[in-house]
Design a protein around this nucleic acid. Structure first.
Lengths: 246, 246
DNA sequence: TGATGGGTTTAACGTAGGTCATCGTTCGCA
DNA sequence: TGCGAACGATGACCTACGTTAAACCCATCA
């Protein structure tokens, strides 16, 4: 039996193919040192060379860099089940930091354990590689959003992406999911000012494609939201949406 | 003895560590079907599911997507030695196309051969993985440029990046390299209008940090150019620049 | 030698999104 | 019950970059 610790990771990986009992156990044995990270604290710092990678078990995290002007650009968002810095197994030192955007629960996987897995578990190795490939594909989508979409389209795309990723780990319900990020944090993902972020949120609400109350986002018209954001899920390697308009 | 075909790939991979004679031969034996692609032609198309990956041996290529508005966003540039679609070994169908930005020479590596390499050559496998990780790190830098840098900074960053990557494969000389892209293509990388691209080129020329004649870019003041673009090479996994101001 | 066409440059004017400033709302907490 | 801090909303004005249009440069080729 595997413990519950790695369940979000297994849930995510199994979207790409079933895992054997042995593979689950290897994953379970790989993690150590579960701990909590407070909101706003870095879980990995630019310039450091960790000897382990970090698995996100609960909460939202984000990779970021800060420009000389002081702007913080969040280059990716992470949800439970994400291996936030798997890449640092081969790429040190870190060229960016990773911050806990909410209170986060994380576990560590030592790099020597990763090395053994890589040498003895070809299927898991491919899944880890695939993990970083999906990461890269997601970066490309963000580039398109940053460069070639209008602000409200970019936001629509991001909401679609987050919904599908939350769905992948079983954290959606009837078109809703918990989105604990403030508009300020969102603006750092979208590279917009907080004021304009607010304007485009208002715009999507006005278009009746989403509701957003407290930290709960409800997609009230998936098709139109996806159309606005030019969202197609293929890059996430999950089948097309089954979310219906109500 | 290995043939000359895979020399650019070997040159690139050896930046990250030496290859054994056996590994070189494995790479040499892996490639097949060298061919030329005409300027402007797609070498890989969105939606396709190739059974091989493509190695760029000569010329410049770019990954791109086209938005509904008709804008073409180039999300990455590729130089000889780059494995332009290594990721499609595990990620099919393609979620973007890859176009030859100049006349290109390419070779193919069948996915079943990649599978054998992955199962039998752990060091090469790690290098392939590293290859995609550097790809991802580069995407993140582009995101920062697209989102948080001013246009002239973004251009400065791109020129620095291209210089270091050309240097990696031995294609620079005294601060110069051949940059066969037109300002129009550049504008599709930077997500700027062609007009504004021209303005920022003019700006960098006026600042005396680059010269650009025909297809030859000469960096006349590396330190200032890198400073303008907030460029740090760590994400490329190559040591800091030895390029001196003249 | 002149025509054609891709690429570059420049000027005049338009707009998406930024900045600044203010105010309302919510919620934890004394 | 009231206070302070963080977040959200909104108006007035500003700017980096987009758009349109025209000229110019320089290869190639008839």
């Amino acid at each position: 039996m595997t413990s519950n610790t790695v369940r979000p990771l297994i849930a995510k990986l199994e979207n790409y193919g079933p895992l054997s009992a042995e593979e689950r156990q290897v994953l379970d044995a790989a993690v150590s040192g579960v701990r909590e990270i407070a909101t706003g604290a870095d879980m990995v710092s630019e310039g450091s060379s960790p000897d382990h990678s970090t698995l996100l078990l609960g909460g939202f995290a984000g990779r970021y860099n800060i420009t000389r002007e002081g702007a913080r650009q969040i280059t990716s968002l992470h949800v439970p089940g994400d291996f936030v810095d798997l890449h640092c197994y081969l790429m040190k030192p870190m060229d960016h930091s990773i911050v806990a955007l909410t209170t986060c629960k994380v576990a560590m996987v030592p790099h020597d354990v990763l090395g053994v897995i890589f040498d003895t578990q070809p299927r898991l190795s491919r899944l880890f590689w695939l993990n970083t490939l999906i990461d890269g594909a997601t970066h490309r989508r963000w580039s398109i959003g940053l460069g070639s979409l209008l602000a409200h389209q970019h936001l629509a795309h991001l909401i679609c992406e987050l919904y599908r990723r939350m769905e992948q780990i079983g954290r959606t319900e009837d078109g809703s999911f918990h989105m604990p990020l403030t508009q300020l944090l969102l603006s750092e993902c979208l590279a917009l000012s907080p004021v304009h972020t607010n304007r485009v949120v208002k715009m999507l609400r006005g278009e009746q494609v989403i509701r957003w109350e407290r930290d709960l986002i409800t997609i009230t018209d998936w098709d139109r939201l996806a159309d606005i954001g030019e969202f197609e899920a293929t890059y996430l390697r999950i089948p097309p949406a089954e979310v219906a308009a109500p």
